[in-house]
């Protein structure tokens, strides 16, 4: 392996030391999904929100719950339904007869990790309430702003859109999720482990936190200190440009996607215990970042859109 110079952390505590622990802990719950787990963690470290798109029952909820548990964060689950109102997410202002005042009752969104289950079942109004909160990191009810906790991390799950009775998220909303991943079916060994092992939920109930919110914030800060060379930025720019100019894509990557790509690549580099970003880091995170933003001109190629992009751009 290439030499790795130690990360220069002024506080002494090396957050990278904990990363291995976090992943190891996660692997005990979600078997055989290391890549997805790492991507989810990357997304969190990069300060973005995560969209998990997959069939019911493959462990989306478990992954979200796990993230909250392992990182020692408060966790709320919002099960979206078609009759859900924005107030059900954000909270309501209720007139308190005792105090003779309007009092804001915080909704489930006031939590460090939110699991928005089956977000595409909700009406667009309810969806937008959540998404606006994700972007602003605060909610405004009756003219009063309420700050959301920090760190704030939304994991939304979505059923594949072809299922009946869904409101697929519009593209503008999709852009607010830094990453979209899918878990997929477990492989043979993982399946066997799931079948024979302890019930996941019970396991999670008693799962110890590996780090706390403080440490998480430190790690997020460390992500920002990962070095990006001009050669690497050249590569990222070439990717963005190609996605916009190549006839293979109907829609290219937005500037926001570009920012997210660099940030996520930094987080991935941190996870890979490097202090500078390599083209490989960009390549690893790009499918998760570009998958829901990039539209292949040929619809049959949509599933491979990110690969088409990666293969089309030589590393300068």
């Amino acid at each position: 392996m290439p030499s790795v110079t130690p990360l220069n952390n002024p506080r002494g505590a090396d957050p990278r030391a904990r990363i291995g622990e976090i992943i190891a802990a996660g692997e005990r719950v979600i078997v055989g999904k290391t890549h997805s787990l790492k991507l989810a963690l990357t997304c969190l470290l990069a300060g973005g929100h995560l969209l998990i798109e997959d069939l019911p029952g493959v462990g989306k909820t478990t992954l979200a719950h796990l993230m909250a548990r392992v990182l020692g964060l408060s966790f709320q689950r919002i099960q979206f339904t078609s009759d859900m109102l924005p107030a059900d997410v954000i909270g309501v202002t209720i007139y308190d007869r005792d105090t003779q005042q309007f009092e804001f009752h915080r909704g489930p969104i006031f939590s460090q990790v939110i699991l928005g289950d089956e977000i595409n079942r909700a009406t667009p109004r309810a969806q937008s309430a959540l998404l606006e909160a994700m972007e602003e990191r605060q909610v405004t009810v009756d003219g009063v702003s309420h700050r959301l906790p920090h760190p704030f991390f939304v994991i939304a799950t979505q059923n594949p859109t072809y299922q009946i009775g869904t409101f697929p998220l519009p593209e503008s909303q999709l852009d607010r999720f830094l990453m979209r991943i899918s878990l997929g079916y477990p492989d043979r060994d993982a399946e066997r482990a799931l079948l024979t092992g302890q019930d996941r939920r019970t396991l999670l109930e008693n799962f110890p936190a590996v780090i706390g919110p403080e440490e998480l914030l430190e790690m997020q800060q460390a992500v920002g200190e990962i070095h990006t060379s001009s050669a690497l930025l050249d590569y990222v720019q070439a990717l963005l440009e190609f996605s916009r100019t190549s006839p293979e894509f109907a829609t290219g990557l937005s500037p926001r996607a570009g920012l997210g790509l660099v940030q996520a690549a930094r987080a991935w580099a941190l996870l890979s215990e490097r202090d500078s970003v390599m083209p490989e880091d960009v390549q690893r995170v790009l499918p998760a970042i570009a998958g829901h933003r990039l539209r292949a001109a040929d619809e049959s190629q949509q599933a491979h859109a990110a690969d088409l992009l990666l293969q089309g751009v030589p590393i300068p």
Binding site: M1, P2, S3, T5, H227, S229, A231, L232, D275, S276, V277, M278, P279
Partner: peptide, 15 residues
């Protein structure tokens, strides 16, 4: 190869 690659990425992608 690892040695050369290490030097290369050190110069090109690290500081």
């Amino acid at each position: 190869v690892a040695e050369i690659t290490g030097s290369y990425i050190d110069i090109r992608y690290a500081n």
